[in-house]
């Protein structure tokens, strides 16, 4: 292994820093120092962002965040500390205006439609596997328990959900035009394995969100 380091490939002989003039060597030395410090800094920042909150990351949190976000973020812990143990489905329904009267549709299980698209699909699309699932996570993270949006992200997530629902419903439903929509989440715990003696009640919990008026901005084509 050692000769490889001393002898550049191709019979070139040593072509390292030793052959350089003094100014060039000084320049290379500075470059080595800069690169070393740069790498150490980068690794430290990335490490502090990933590690649990600790003494150092508390003290330098702002520096870490300003360096790491948005491009060096590492944001997945899909199965940690615990894997998701419940199926989260998003249902939606609408009131449609038809011949001067309005009627309310039944609940449509949008996640089940995603699930159907994923079944038997070796390479599910992000539109099926991530779009609604992650949008709903985004929504829940930025709303309080009463379903009130928190900050800008709350507002953005709400419109995002509306636009996903309207993309899937379309402006016309059951022969009428959609005026308002409502979504709810249906959370069902995964039943404990047969081979465990654990007993969990497998019961779906619904969380219903307020009715939202549909505006042209929520329809496909109104997004710009």
């Amino acid at each position: 292994m050692e000769p490889a380091a001393h002898q550049a490939p191709g019979g070139e002989g040593m072509r390292g820093i030793a052959a350089l003039s003094l100014p060039a060597r000084i320049f290379v030395a500075i470059a080595v120092a800069v690169v070393t410090v740069g790498i150490a800094f980068h690794v430290a920042m990335v490490f502090l962002q990933t590690a649990p909150e600790n003494t150092i990351s508390k003290r330098h949190g702002e520096l870490v965040d300003s360096y790491v976000y948005p491009e060096f973020e590492r944001n997945w812990k899909l199965f940690a500390p615990n894997p998701l143990q419940q199926n989260v489905a998003v249902h939606a329904r609408a009131t449609v205006a038809k011949d001067g009267s309005t009627e309310t549709t039944g609940w449509v299980d949008l996640s089940a439609m995603d699930g159907a698209a994923i079944h038997g699909n070796p390479a599910p699309s992000h539109t099926q596997q991530n779009e609604l699932r992650r949008a709903w996570e985004f929504y829940v993270d930025n709303h309080d328990e009463k379903g009130k949006p928190v900050g800008l992200r709350g507002a953005l997530s709400e419109q995002y959900i509306k636009r996903i629902v309207m993309l899937r419903f379309g402006p016309e439903l059951n022969g009428g035009s959609v005026e308002r929509i409502q979504v709810r989440s249906a959370v069902t715990p995964v039943a404990p394995p047969d081979w465990s003696d654990e007993r969990t009640e497998v019961k779906t919990r619904y969380t219903v969100q307020p009715w939202w008026h549909v505006t042209s901005a929520d329809l496909p084509g109104g997004g710009k």
Binding site: N82, N87, H119, V190, P193, S196
Partner: peptide, 23 residues
Amino acid sequence: IQGTRWQDGTAVYYPMNLDYFTP
């Protein structure tokens, strides 16, 4: 390691029962 499901040895069971991850 901090997760109870990884401790009790059942963690891998759950993703295999999530509708979004069971083609």
